[in-house]
Design a binder for these strands. Structure first.
Length: 781
DNA sequence: CTAGGGTTAG
């Protein structure tokens, strides 16, 4: 007879060695024969092994027959349930222990139970969090790691970080949990900061760490991190793991360093599918379509089965030159192979369609996708927002809310862009609250979009406050703020900010110069603008593009230097396009130069015959010059060519509710009161010396309707309504889709004086702040 | 390890 203890050790080793279920079943049988089936240590080991071999049912059966399990055995079973995707069972067991036994859960119990709760309703996890604190594990490393992971899985980034902060001891696993949690929630900057803290703090990192950090740095185009990773790997003396190499390939490719990426690819002796995919996508996003396709074919020749990642990488969504035929053939391939069912593939194709302005095709693909990821929704929403279909973007967002699909920073960025375009301040504020609640504000895309939203909704001060509180700013952030100042006619602030930007070491881009030039132009800062243009070419070595030239023409023309503007056009090294002539035509309107206007519009009708705007502008110029026959003949030409005119409309928000007015609108429920208010106001204005200027007030109106319609341009209705519906002394804020006409501009000046109100008007081009009878644009728009 | 979604200017 063998002694029980020798017996037990013998069987424990046997259990450990088992690699298959039948193996383990034999051992189990022998254990029973030897009378060890009621031995705690043996049963625990057996349970552990059974659950590792995915036989959780047998494991639980075994335990249920055991007379008096201890906490250790329960913990093993909870872990088994959790790892075998039975989170409910894990939780039942945990609550069973608390209710039916006198055992006190320990850190293992909490760690395993919390892990299971990642797949259950969030409130369960929160409950467990509380109970673990009561149990005395508020700063336990293992329980804490599980909680951090859980909160990240629920996108509760703030809570995750809070738990993390309270854990004094931090090992590699905890740091990895934090870093990958941040990356998965699009908190890229923060993930890199965490990695830095980890390294500085002396915690050893591993390949898991690097494989989380590399995509984050690729996302941010942070080449330095990649180089640092390479140095660290070399220092550590280990061979560069192939996974890390693949991550590096992707990073370098996304930073435009395609040659380095290629050389890393060549370093891999026998690249796997994933490495191929990284390289194919690398070529694609660097516009090296041929190399990309070549590598793709090479991959096919190797007999390797391509996957969805290969296809997505092949689609050059980053390329500004989308190719509809290519997209269509890839789409067909995906339809035939069933690949289109993959949400990543359909999202990629949706995006290309959107970029090619094929928004209907994009929507069809979206609707046909059986499985929509958050990314699919984001692609569709941004597609609408970028194509100017802001209402569609917002309604899709509302649909998401109804379906309780949780937005992420990408979603809110697109929605903010839509709010900005639309001037929807109350929705924008609501989104801002959401952003604070979710902790998205530190995301640079989100905060930049917020700045833009507030500025475009009229709150330039709020935009600047946000800008000043941002810890990290990129070029786009600076551009957005500079552009905001331009929009509000604050040229000096724009110039100051530009200087500050250059001083803080940020390299300006083409957009920066455009924004500064427009700001100068809208504020009449001719010298400032000319200096910037000169500096752009000579100090910054920037080759001006067509739009920069157009901006200069606008600057000179607006300031009345029409001859100089024309001279500038003739000296341009590139052929002047519609933007340039359009700017000149606009200047002719302001300064009533019909001859030059005719020259500019002849060029425009030739270059851009379908655009009605130029006809309207020319007609208005003739009218302003009281040359009515000419004006009429231009309008005749518009009619003959059957070109559609954009109807004017104005939006005003009162008590968070938007009201939209069109010309001569009578549909508003309070329309009678509005007209009474308007009449009264006009009477007071006449006494104060206001005269309607019929002849310049003709954006898109027929001659005979002029007198009638001048009185009821949509912005007048909106202002009158605003005066009735809001408290005396409060600011009135309106948004219109066309440029404000001279008559309405005068009207608003008088209105601001008589009613003692600040009136802020956003027109198609810029903002006007009316106060005490004066407009911030200096009558210069 | 790879692939899909985001901010500014016109």
């Amino acid at each position: 007879m063998i002694s029980p203890s020798r017996d037990r050790n013998f069987f424990l080793k046997l259990i450990n060695k088992a690699t298959t279920l039948s193996h383990l079943s034999q051992t189990h049988a022998q254990i029973t024969l030897n009378g060890l089936h009621n031995d705690l240590a043996t049963v625990t080991k057996l349970t552990h092994k059974l659950s590792d071999l995915n036989s959780i049912y047998q494991a639980s059966l075994l335990c249920s027959k055991f007379p008096k399990p201890d906490l250790f055995l329960y913990n093993v079973l909870i872990r088994g349930f959790s790892q075998n995707n039975f989170p409910h069972k894990a939780l039942d067991l945990y609550f069973g222990i608390r209710k039916n036994t006198t055992l006190k859960p320990d850190n293992f119990t909490y760690a395993f139970t919390v892990s299971a709760s990642s797949y259950l309703p969030e409130k369960v996890g929160v409950l467990l969090h509380g109970q673990s604190i009561v149990g005395g594990f508020g700063s336990d490393l293992f329980v804490g790691s599980a909680l951090v992971d859980m909160y990240f899985n629920f996108s509760k980034v703030g809570y995750a970080c809070k738990v993390f902060d309270e854990i004094p001891e931090r090992d590699t696993v905890l740091w990895n949990t934090v870093i990958s949690g941040l990356v998965n929630n699009c908190f890229f900057e923060e993930s890199l900061r965490a990695f830095k803290d980890m390294v500085v703090g002396g915690t050893r990192f591993d390949s898991t760490t690097l494989t989380a950090v590399l995509p984050a740095s690729a996302e941010l185009q942070e080449l330095r991190v990649g180089m640092m990773v390479q140095c660290l790997v070399v220092k550590a003396g280990c061979h560069c793991h192939e996974y890390i190499l693949t991550g590096l390939i992707s990073l370098y490719a996304k930073c435009g360093e395609i040659l380095i990426a290629k050389s890393l690819f060549d370093q891999i002796g026998c690249p796997d599918l994933v490495s191929y995919n990284a390289m194919i996508s690398g070529f694609s996003c660097n516009n090296e379509t041929e190399s990309s396709v070549k590598l793709f074919k090479e991959l096919l020749c190797l007999g390797e089965r391509v996957n969805s990642s290969t296809i997505v990488g092949l689609i050059p969504v980053f390329s500004p030159f989308g190719n509809l035929d290519l997209t269509w053939s890839i789409h067909c391939f995906c339809l035939k192979s069933g690949m289109v069912l993959n949400p990543s593939v359909s999202t990629a194709v949706t995006t290309v369609y959107s970029r090619l302005c094929e928004i209907e095709s994009a929507r069809k693909l979206f609707d046909d996708s059986p499985e929509k990821s958050l990314t699919s929704w984001n692609a569709m929403i941004s597609g609408y927002a970028q194509n100017g279909q802001t209402e569609m973007a917002i309604s899709l967002f509302r649909e998401m809310q109804d379906l309780e699909i949780h937005p992420n920073p990408v979603t809110v960025t697109s929605i903010l862009s839509a709010c900005a375009q639309l001037g929807a301040l109350s929705l924008g504020r609501w989104v801002h609250d959401l952003i604070n609640k979710e902790g998205f504000e530190s995301n640079i895309f989100v905060s930049t979009a917020l700045i833009d939203m507030y500025a475009k909704c009229g709150s330039i001060a709020k935009a600047r406050r946000l800008f000043d509180t941002m810890q990290e700013k990129n070029v786009v952030t600076w551009n957005a703020m500079i552009c905001s100042y331009g929009l509000h006619g604050r040229g000096h602030e724009a110039l100051n900010l530009f200087t500050k930007m250059v001083d803080s070491g940020i390299s300006p881009t083409g957009v920066t110069f455009l924004s500064v030039l427009y700001a100068c132009s809208h504020s009449g800062l001719v010298n400032g603008g000319e200096e910037i243009f000169h500096s752009m070419v000579h100090d910054h070595g920037f080759e001006p593009l067509a739009e920069h030239y157009a901006c200069m023409v606008d600057l000179l023309g607006r300031a009345g230097k029409l001859e100089k503007a024309l001279e500038f056009i003739y000296k341009m090294p590139i052929a002047p396009g519609p933007a340039v002539w359009g700017a000149l035509l606009g200047a002719c309107m302001i300064h009533k130069d019909t001859n030059l206007a005719q020259l500019a519009s002849d060029k425009l009708f030739e270059l851009d015959p379908e655009n009605v705007g130029y006809y309207v502008l020319l007609s208005n110029i003739y009218s302003a010059d009281r040359n009515y026959p000419q004006a009429a003949s231009v309008r005749q030409a518009v009619k003959k060519r059957n070109l559609a005119k954009t109807p004017g409309c104005t939006l005003i928000e009162v008590n968070e509710t938007p009201h939209i007015f069109t010309s001569s609108d009578r549909s508003h429920p309070q329309i009678a009161a509005i007209y009474i208010k308007l009449e009264k106001l006009m009477g007071e204005m006449m006494e104060a010396g206001f005269q309607t200027e019929t002849f310049t007030a003709l954006h898109d109106v027929e001659e005979e309707e002029k007198e009638l319609m001048v009185k009821v341009h949509s912005e007048k209705l909106a202002i009158a309504f605003g005066l009735i519906a809001s408290e005396p002394g409060t600011e009135i804020r309106i948004i219109k889709n066309l440029r404000v006409c001279l008559d309405c501009h005068n009207f608003t000046k008088f209105a601001s004086k008589i009613t003692e109100r600040l009136i802020v008007v956003r027109d198609a081009n810029r903002f006007h702040h009316f106060k005490e009878g004066v407009c911030s644009c200096g009558d210069y728009w």
